[in-house]
Amino acid sequence: MDYPPPPDVTGRSLDGSDPYIIDPAENAALCRSTGVEPATDGTAHPAYYYIATQVAMGQTVAGLCALCDFDVEQGPMMASSSVRFQAPLRTGHPYRVTGEIAGLTRKSSRKLGLMDLLEYRLRLHEADGTTVLETTNVWVLPRRELMQ
């Protein structure tokens, strides 16, 4: 069966506009919520690679889904996430985010049926432009409604 292609969103910018600062108190709460004490040297929990890029990119989760012609209420699912750090993350430090959609591919799977795979890349930068990390996330966007 033929299905319509997904929207052509490859290359769409996800650059953020506002700086993101890892709040020391929030970092402490996050660490404790996962069962560890925060570092005392000013470094933040590395899980902020995901949070900082996701929160400060130029789209909300709902907005990113909407770009892909997908209703966030249908439930996007994380498929994979990769990150390469150039330096540890620090609390109280302004970072900015650049990024783009790397691809949106329509596929059929035995388990999930018709779905779109959304791949997007985000980078976190120091105020002077130095890149601190790059992350690539892949989400599954279930498209069962197109099979009905």
């Binding site: 590395p46 699912m77 994380m78 498929a79 994979s80 996430s81 990769s82 990150v83 390469r84 750090f85 540890p88």
Partner: peptide, 10 residues
């Protein structure tokens, strides 16, 4: 130590 790369499949 510092984590320099992490690849995760959910």
């Amino acid at each position: 130590g510092h984590i320099t790369a992490l690849e995760s499949r959910f």
